[in-house]
Computed example of a mutant assay.
Amino acid sequence: MKFVVNKFSSFVQNVIDHVTGAEAPNVYSQPQGQIDKVLHQLPQLKQKYRPTPWLSNQHVHLLYFDLIRKRTIKLQYDKIEQLTMQDGGITAIAWLGYDLPATTPTIVLMHTITGTPESMRELVKDLHAYTGWRVALCLRRGHAQLPMPVPKMNLFGSVEDLKEQINFIQQQFPQSELYGVGSSAGTGLLVRYLGEQGEDTPLKAAFALCPGYNTETGFENVHPFYSKIMTKKLFNKFIQPYANTWGESPALSKVLQAKTLLEFEQAYFEMAGYPDYQSYSQATNPIYVFENVKIPLMILNAEDDPVCHIRNFEPYKEVIRSMPNIAVVTTKKGSHCGFYQGVKYTHSWANKLVADFLLTQEKEK
């Protein structure tokens, strides 16, 4: 009887898996590369990622993540410190686990395109809970209603600002090992920084969650609905509240005509401090320095992501397979930055993978 019940349960689970798109992840890496040892220590990569059944549609999944989940997670940061950059611009760091022992590792977290301490609560809370480490969320200019005394912003962030933020973190916790995590647009800043720095970085390993790879082409593949919605968010977050800061900026009229993320990105370069789009892209696009990343880096994409489309990854598969320190993980489902699993209690499969990867790297060092 037990055998029959087990067979029936297995049959039912297989049917559910087929309907919801539950499959084991695909992993792209150099065989026998230095990161290979770590991959074998992550059981999630050998098992099926089973999305929450009622979130198996990528649009429902994303709307749940963006409109419900972000607003229901409760988290009180220890403190948020504003930092003045060398040119007078303002950034900030939101801390969780600030009072942990001085030798506790610190996760340097780079947020999404319109990220705030509130919108990043789930990832911050999960990383802290799973690892027991300190988390330093690096807020970019204009985010979280920070003052903008200098008319300068960047959708993907500034490497120079990040370097100043990392220096500040090191000054506060000189005995703490640092690890990097980027989410969505934050992956552009993370990888650009890692590529520019090569081996000259205090970060021991890093994780890029839902990157778009080449920033010159990535916005072309964003689903039209989300492109329009996110463009309106950019106006509401970075243009309208800082009207006095932008003043008579030559780029402002062109930016205000933008209807899509691609149009916005191609028009706002002067607001980022560059004379033309080519200069802006050469200085910020992570793909130009990607092959110079030297520390262990894991990347995660969902094949049904409507924002950072999986086709963005396609041109770089062979390059990644040639790099011993890089691994790309793809899942059939997961949408954009969600990756929820569970029925009664939904939780992020991806956040656990990020934490486990970093913990494994800490053990390996």
Rank of each mutant, 00 (worst) to 15 (best):
D276R: 06
V293G: 00
K237A: 12
Q266R: 15
A205D: 02
A267Y: 10
Q266P: 03
A272M: 08
T215H: 02
P224S: 01
N244M: 03
P250L: 08
A208W: 02
V222N: 00
V293F: 07
C210A: 13
L262E: 13
K259P: 01
H223Y: 11
E248H: 11
C210M: 06
T217S: 13
K228P: 00
P275V: 09
Y288I: 12
Y274F: 14
Q282M: 10
Y274P: 07
V289P: 00
N221T: 07
A243H: 12
Q266I: 04
V289E: 09
S279T: 15
Y280T: 02
Q257K: 15
M271F: 06
F219W: 13
E291A: 14
G212H: 01
Y268L: 05
Y268T: 07
L261E: 05
G218D: 11
Q240E: 14
Q257Y: 05
A208P: 04
K233T: 14
T284S: 09
E220I: 06
K233I: 04
E270H: 12
G212K: 00
T284R: 04
F264L: 15
A251P: 12
F238H: 12
T260A: 02
Y213N: 02
M271D: 02
A208E: 01
M271H: 07
L262A: 12
F207G: 00
V222K: 00
D276Y: 06
M271P: 01
A267Q: 12
N214E: 07
E265Y: 15
Q282L: 14
E270F: 06
T231M: 02
W246Q: 04
Y277L: 14
Q257H: 12
T217H: 06
A206M: 11
V293I: 14
G247L: 08
S279N: 10
G273L: 07
N285K: 03
Q282H: 12
N244F: 02
L262K: 15
T215V: 14
S281E: 02
F219V: 04
T231Y: 00
N244W: 01
S253Q: 15
P202E: 06
Y274H: 14
G218L: 08
H223M: 04
L261T: 09
A267N: 12
K254P: 02
Q278F: 01
K204Q: 14
Q257S: 09
P211T: 08
L261K: 09
Q282N: 13
T284W: 03
K228Y: 04
Y280Q: 05
K259E: 14
P241H: 05
Y288R: 07
F269C: 01
H223D: 15
T201K: 04
P224K: 05
P275K: 08
S249Y: 07
F219H: 06
A243N: 09
E265N: 15
Y242D: 00
Q257P: 02
P241K: 05
S253I: 13
A243W: 05
V289Q: 08
I239D: 00
S279H: 09
L234N: 07
E216W: 09
Y268Q: 06
S227T: 11
V222W: 02
F269V: 04
L262Q: 15
L209P: 00
